[in-house]
Computed example of a mutant assay.
Amino acid sequence: MNTVLITGCSTGFGRETALHFLDKGWQVFATMRNPEASTLPASDALHVLPLDVTKPNSITDAVAKAGQIDVLVNNAGIGWLNAIEGTPLDTAREIFEANLFGAMAMMQAVLPGMRERRSGVIVNVSSSTIYKPVPLLSVYRASKAALTAMTEAAVPELSQFGIQARVVVPGLAPSTSFAANAQEMIAKRGWFPPAYQDFAQQTLSQMQAHDPNAVTTAQDVAEAVFRAATDPACPTVLPAGVDALAWSKGE
């Protein structure tokens, strides 16, 4: 039985991806910061573990408990909605710590074993904002663009050892917890600077007035991640969802 370790499985993309792999007969290590709050179903093939990708000891413990990892899915991340001027540098560093360096730390933790076995796949979950600039998401977009660039550059590094690296790029997904998490962070640290209030309100209204037929579902992402993990012919960067595909083509 193949084994996958997925980060950020409490809700949204991560949770659905864990269920998808489970349905395909995989052994799944679904990780999250607060496993007590997990709503994943009980299963002999499903193991819910605590993991904070910004804490080295947490990473070491989770990887050790999982044992041989055939596929790593870096899905955990932090959302943020604010202007550059309204984003403290400490907050920007926290976002990069989770979205980029956390994924990098997870890769470093599993790569020695994959290298020794000369097999394995790493799938990093990015964002369609890498294709098309979205106001107020500049810091978040920068972190995901860096994650994508890092993964693409890792492909030739890792392929010599039989390891594949892929990026899945979800489109707009209003049903996930991204917006709620971003709003929670903003509530704790202050809203937009006064000079940006009107612009922020207009931008948020436009985001909310999305076409319901052009959104990415958690199932879209789960299917794309599974393809990235199992299809040798899959491209390095794989859009997931209608709008992500359109944006990647410049439409």
Rank of each mutant, 00 (worst) to 15 (best):
residue 217 T to D: 08
residue 219 Q to V: 13
residue 177 S to Y: 06
residue 227 R to C: 04
residue 203 T to K: 11
residue 196 Y to L: 13
residue 224 A to D: 03
residue 178 F to S: 03
residue 228 A to R: 02
residue 209 A to G: 08
residue 223 E to A: 07
residue 228 A to W: 07
residue 226 F to Y: 06
residue 189 R to A: 13
residue 179 A to N: 09
residue 203 T to C: 12
residue 180 A to T: 15
residue 213 N to K: 09
residue 208 Q to N: 12
residue 224 A to L: 08
residue 168 V to W: 02
residue 220 D to F: 04
residue 200 A to Y: 11
residue 202 Q to P: 00
residue 202 Q to A: 10
residue 182 A to E: 05
residue 208 Q to Y: 01
residue 179 A to I: 11
residue 200 A to T: 04
residue 201 Q to L: 14
residue 177 S to R: 13
residue 211 D to Q: 05
residue 185 M to F: 15
residue 228 A to D: 03
residue 177 S to Q: 15
residue 178 F to V: 01
residue 190 G to S: 11
residue 194 P to V: 14
residue 217 T to G: 12
residue 207 M to E: 09
residue 226 F to D: 01
residue 229 A to L: 03
residue 187 A to T: 14
residue 224 A to F: 05
residue 167 V to I: 14
residue 190 G to V: 14
residue 176 T to R: 05
residue 184 E to H: 12
residue 182 A to T: 08
residue 173 A to Q: 05
residue 176 T to Q: 06
residue 185 M to I: 11
residue 205 S to V: 05
residue 201 Q to S: 12
residue 193 P to H: 07
residue 228 A to Y: 07
residue 167 V to H: 01
residue 209 A to R: 08
residue 176 T to W: 00
residue 179 A to Q: 09
residue 219 Q to I: 10
residue 212 P to V: 06
residue 187 A to R: 11
residue 227 R to D: 02
residue 205 S to T: 09
residue 217 T to Y: 01
residue 195 A to S: 10
residue 211 D to T: 03
residue 211 D to A: 04
residue 190 G to Y: 03
residue 171 G to T: 02
residue 188 K to V: 13
residue 185 M to A: 15
residue 188 K to N: 11
residue 212 P to I: 06
residue 207 M to F: 14
residue 221 V to K: 02
residue 212 P to H: 09
residue 186 I to W: 02
residue 209 A to Q: 10
residue 200 A to Q: 09
residue 169 V to C: 03
residue 205 S to M: 14
residue 195 A to N: 09
residue 197 Q to S: 12
residue 203 T to Q: 15
residue 170 P to L: 04
residue 197 Q to G: 13
residue 218 A to S: 07
residue 197 Q to D: 13
residue 208 Q to C: 08
residue 168 V to R: 01
residue 228 A to M: 06
residue 222 A to T: 06
residue 175 S to Q: 15
residue 175 S to P: 05
residue 188 K to E: 15
residue 229 A to P: 02
residue 215 V to R: 01
residue 223 E to F: 02
residue 206 Q to A: 15
residue 202 Q to K: 11
residue 215 V to K: 03
residue 225 V to T: 03
residue 186 I to T: 13
residue 224 A to C: 06
residue 182 A to K: 05
residue 203 T to M: 15
residue 167 V to L: 03
residue 198 D to P: 00
residue 174 P to I: 04
residue 173 A to D: 06
residue 228 A to T: 04
residue 183 Q to C: 07
residue 199 F to I: 15
residue 171 G to Y: 08
residue 170 P to F: 01
residue 192 F to W: 12
residue 167 V to S: 00
residue 215 V to W: 00
residue 170 P to N: 04
residue 174 P to Y: 03
residue 207 M to K: 04
residue 169 V to P: 01
residue 168 V to D: 04
residue 210 H to A: 11
residue 168 V to Q: 04
residue 228 A to N: 02
residue 187 A to G: 11
residue 202 Q to F: 11
residue 182 A to H: 04
residue 178 F to T: 00
residue 212 P to R: 09
residue 202 Q to D: 10
residue 192 F to N: 13
